[in-house]
Write a protein that binds this DNA or RNA. Sequence first.
DNA 1: GAAAATAACAAAAACGATTACGGAATTTTA
DNA 2: TAAAATTCCGTAATCGTTTTTGTTATTTTC
Lengths: 344, 344
Amino acid sequence: MEKNLTIKDVAKKAGVSVSTVSRAFNNYSDINPETRENILKIAQELNYKPNIVAKSLSSNRNFRLGMIVEDYNITGMLNPLVFQIMMSFKSTADKLGYEVVLLSTNTDTQKSVKLSTIYSQKQFDGAFIMGLKLSDDYYRELIEFNHPCVLYDIYINNPNVGCVGVDNTKGSFLAVEHLINLGHKKIAMINGHKDAFVSYERLDGYMLALNRYALPVDKSLIYYADFTDQGAAAAVEELLIRHKDITAIFCASDLMAIGAINALNNRGYSVPDDISIVGFDDLYLAQLSNPKLTTIKQDAQAIGESVANLLINLISEQRIGRVVIQPEIVIRESTKAQYLKANP
Amino acid sequence: MEKNLTIKDVAKKAGVSVSTVSRAFNNYSDINPETRENILKIAQELNYKPNIVAKSLSSNRNFRLGMIVEDYNITGMLNPLVFQIMMSFKSTADKLGYEVVLLSTNTDTQKSVKLSTIYSQKQFDGAFIMGLKLSDDYYRELIEFNHPCVLYDIYINNPNVGCVGVDNTKGSFLAVEHLINLGHKKIAMINGHKDAFVSYERLDGYMLALNRYALPVDKSLIYYADFTDQGAAAAVEELLIRHKDITAIFCASDLMAIGAINALNNRGYSVPDDISIVGFDDLYLAQLSNPKLTTIKQDAQAIGESVANLLINLISEQRIGRVVIQPEIVIRESTKAQYLKANP
DNA sequence: GAAAATAACAAAAACGATTACGGAATTTTA
DNA sequence: TAAAATTCCGTAATCGTTTTTGTTATTTTC
């Protein structure tokens, strides 16, 4: 195992001091352009790269970002969106010169080790937290947190913590409006769970659309299915018993939408001929299902980028609280006009 | 932003020198047990945690692992298996006291920055590389690599690099054997692409099973579909033209299996009544499809753990080359007995 | 009971960078 | 042309640890 090159080796080879080499590498002003060029050339030849650990320690700028994801996103049927957002976040962080270290938490670990402890121990300049629930300990800690932090899909009113997410209310509105435009009047909603911030926003959008088009809101049409396909299937079973006259269901996730479609098929209903379905997320899964899913698209790439940019702005003391990504509706095959049932 | 506690603060409060505090934390022998207890208690009270960056620099043990994933796993329809393996790897690395930093590569970046450069710059003790292709620059570099490294789903004969993966040959064998046992005699295979190591192993398993049961191998029944659903759909189109008499298709991934099923449905064929399909991976997707997919399960949890353990063994100079995970067949609804066509 | 060994700690030198400070050479100013 | 400013670079302190070496008591050995 060959010994690693240090700044000293470069300095010796270039016949200058280490501080000069450092200056060359960090674009300092007080260095002769010729010297700089020469040093960089020699460094290039030697294939020298500064040791990032030493750099962190000495500069007290760590260029380290934590990416903390809740465990429940990992086990079972995990959300591919999370993965895409993570990778997008990583890529833009990379471009901006930050490395990202991966962490996970769950309700238990949150009780034993505080977020601020993680920051100081890990020397994070900031962190990106995904999958935080309203009932989490970290959610409470974040209310008065004083380190840079960015959250996805949950909002906290604290200048140190940024929040990015799709406009869920608008997304839901778009979904339900689309159904209404197709002539549907009795539209059920299968929501996530009540510990998720987005569930409230998505519910708002649903109600807003109904109100806007002067349709009655029937609370017995609203189910909570925990973001799982089985949960959605169970909800559909109940819906088919209690509300035989529904013609459309808006699901707060694609996975639940698939669960709903499968349950409907099992009961002999056809999507979209009997019942229209719209999902939320636009996972790749939405193109794979049969019929292909009409859904609300969350742009994972854009979300990841926004998170990284926001976080790094926060680190450099620029306070920008919230980034809202605009959702789009993607119309495929799971929704259909329902004029016949519209006015019986 | 409160200043972080250092070892000095603990030393001062405990009335000892910093070296004694360090000894207390690192289970050194030459320290009075009472002193140690006292120091640990005080550290606990102060909520002091050692700065990992300083620790790395001074001890020259970094406890840092790189997790490098190929870009093509990110864009487009990404494989959820990769995500699960990543998280499982992270969790066990965590338990063993290592932090993992996330990186990505692609064919281009591999040309400009060598793997060994990444190691020295990032101060990695080791790295886990996912998605490496046979045509990659890093593959070539790894042949004579002298840092600890573990690969998933690709094999290299080098004591410094470990390899873990499912027994692909056996997995394919199981899949095809299952079809043969159901009475299928004309079985097509839709493989991945030729830059993937696993494609060769999976092909081997297919041929092995045919030979074992004295069925002829017809190379025109073997397609390469790039691991995509569209590729598989295209392959199916061709198969339906050229080989109307096939009764089963083995796909080297679940995604391709879904693509095949959809294509068959579009052409008016029923799965499994007309044609049986088996996939590979056992993604959650396999349970969501209609019919539910019979497939070969890769245990992501076990793979991630094995990779982490193997890598850390490699780091501590213990040479264990390869870990092979046993695949299992999961029989669901996409395969069915085909006695009628078996002997016409 | 003097020499040797051990136990328990402190002092100081690393680790590999950044950066505050200072100083010589050169250029600008008056 | 002397003083001031600027340019360019070296010296040395620093970051928060670990680790080597040193030191003082105490214990063991013969």
